[in-house]
Design a protein around this nucleic acid. Structure first.
Lengths: 181, 181
DNA sequence: GTCTATAATTCGATAGAC
DNA sequence: GTCTATCGAATTATAGAC
């Protein structure tokens, strides 16, 4: 079959995200990605140069955080956790970052970049003091729950409904974002 | 050099824990472990059969949770976070579990086992309702902070002192353990 | 744009000498 | 108890034909 370059690239990227999300960086092979995309492994090299280049493209990521300055202050925690639950299930790029970031330095650097350029500034506009620490606390609880639910699959975390997660985590995030010292 | 079997096994295990903790399951090679231990790769096979066997031995783990029934109820959160901060820095088995559990199914199963047999029962004796969910919430916050601090190395999390971590996380864990609904 | 062939490594694992 | 030699499989990556 003969396709356009953009079609092929898109097919490869979709397959790569699935593989990276499911297997992590080292276990996700170019051959497997190519097989999933229904093309030859050589095409992956042609379009992305090498495995690092493929990963860099597959890990492009926008948190798409809402404008938190328009949210009532007492509902910040709930808004943030709702956003991330939905963001987590929309596609698997967040899962790519988490799965690969734990064993691959380049991927960890990518997560830090997302944190530094997207999450921290947004939080910084909300709290006057300790913004960086607050952003980290928020990230730790969100990533920790994602880890237990989607990666490690702790039975109680998997069984919990989205609303239950929100009920428990919203007050935690609210405190991290708005409490003094 | 000629050593006793126990000496050699101990040297291999120590090296294996370091490698698994730093690289995860697939990137930690038997050859690298053997080089670190200053012995031949064949010795690893001799004593542990295969890579899975080596991992199983390296991932033997006891949370060593204190008897929480003897702790004043209002200090439960602080006690738990203090224990885990110390446990995390005592050796690197917890880091082994986290690094490997994200990409290796056997390792993930091992973490779930530690959770189910060691953490959940202890929490279960404290709260009458929703014990499993409470244990998961505690695990999510503790693992999430460990992830940001020791694995992903978010600068604000790395710079935070132990006491700051305790001040922020203790109230969170306290609420997860003792709050109603 | 697609694929074949293959080079160059690397890894887990085995057999066997000393 | 320790090591050499090596097999067989898998991987990234390259060169080049069609």
């Amino acid at each position: 079959m003969r396709r356009s370059a953009t079609e092929t690239k898109a097919a490869i990227l979709a397959a790569a995200r699935q593989r990276f999300a499911a297997d992590g960086y080292e276990k996700a092979t170019i051959r497997a990605v190519a097989a999933d995309a229904g093309i030859d492994p050589a095409m992956v090299m042609r379009y992305f140069g090498n495995k690092e280049g493929l990963f860099a493209s597959a890990a492009e990521f926008d948190l798409r955080l809402p404008d938190l300055s328009r949210v009532p202050r007492e509902r910040l925690g709930e808004t943030v956790i709702r956003h991330f639950l939905q963001r987590w299930q929309a596609d698997d790029v967040l899962q790519v970052l988490l799965r690969t970031g734990v064993t691959n330095d380049a991927a960890a650097a990518r997560i830090r970049e997302v944190f530094t350029t997207q999450l921290a500034p947004t939080m910084g506009r909300l709290a006057k003091d300790g913004a960086a620490a607050r952003a980290t606390l928020v990230a730790s609880q969100i990533l920790g729950m994602a880890l237990c639910r989607y990666i490690l699959k702790f039975p109680p975390a998997v069984d919990m409904s989205d609303e239950e997660v929100i009920e428990w985590l919203a007050p935690t995030l609210q405190r991290y974002l708005t409490d003094s010292g």
